[in-house]
Simulated scan of single mutants.
Amino acid sequence: MIATMEYVDILDYSEQLGKMILQSDVMQKYRQTRKQLEEDKEAQQLIQAFIDIKEHYEDVQRFGRYHPDFNEVMKNVRKTKRAMDMNDKVATFKIAERNLQKLLDEISQYVALSVSEQVKAPKDGAALSDGGCGCGSGGGCGCAS
């Protein structure tokens, strides 16, 4: 592709926009809460416990409700996730993460609509699909596509 001045200008504006996002209050709050989360030993233990039970959950999911430990594992997953989500550092981080996602979605929408009404952009943290994950498996993965 031959670089035109217009193309170079677009790249410059994109770089400026990226820098503005990185310097925004929303991004600063995200970084701050992420650092606090990473440094909190209790939160990290809860996250690790959830990761461990989630791996066991994925093994059980292969057999579904016919697995002998299905009910126990499902109960443990909910209990572990609830404990993790109730931690102040995790909850604060999730709020900051949602706010950053909202900012990025708004910027994507603004840029897309400035080009054309037909250009699709992520909305509400979702991918570019119409209600599913967009995997193309026809719902075989459990999504709604």
Rank of each mutant, 00 (worst) to 15 (best):
H56M: 14
Y57W: 08
Y57H: 05
Y57G: 00
Y57P: 00
E58D: 13
V60G: 01
Q61H: 06
Q61T: 05
Q61E: 13
R62H: 15
R62K: 15
R65H: 11
Y66K: 12
H67A: 02
P68I: 06
F70A: 05
E72S: 09
E72G: 06
E72A: 11
E72D: 11
E72I: 07
E72Q: 12
M74G: 01
M74E: 13
K75W: 07
K75Q: 14
K75A: 13
N76Q: 11
N76G: 00
V77Y: 05
V77T: 06
V77P: 01
V77G: 02
T80F: 02
K81I: 04
K81Q: 10
K81D: 04
R82M: 12
R82W: 10
A83V: 01
M84L: 10
N87I: 09
N87S: 14
N87W: 05
K89E: 07
K89V: 07
K89T: 07
V90I: 14
V90T: 06
T92D: 12
F93P: 00
K94Y: 10
A96Q: 05
A96V: 09
E97A: 15
R98V: 01
R98S: 14
L100N: 03
K102R: 15
K102H: 14
L104G: 08
D105N: 11
E106G: 06
I107E: 15
I107N: 14
I107G: 13
S108K: 08
Y110I: 13
V111D: 03
V111F: 05
A112K: 02
L113D: 12
V115P: 03
V115K: 07
S116Q: 03
Q118N: 12
Q118M: 08
K120N: 04
K120G: 00
A121R: 06
A121K: 07
P122N: 02
D124F: 10
D124P: 02
D124N: 14
G125P: 00
G125K: 00
A126T: 15
L128P: 00
D130M: 05
G131T: 05
G131Y: 03
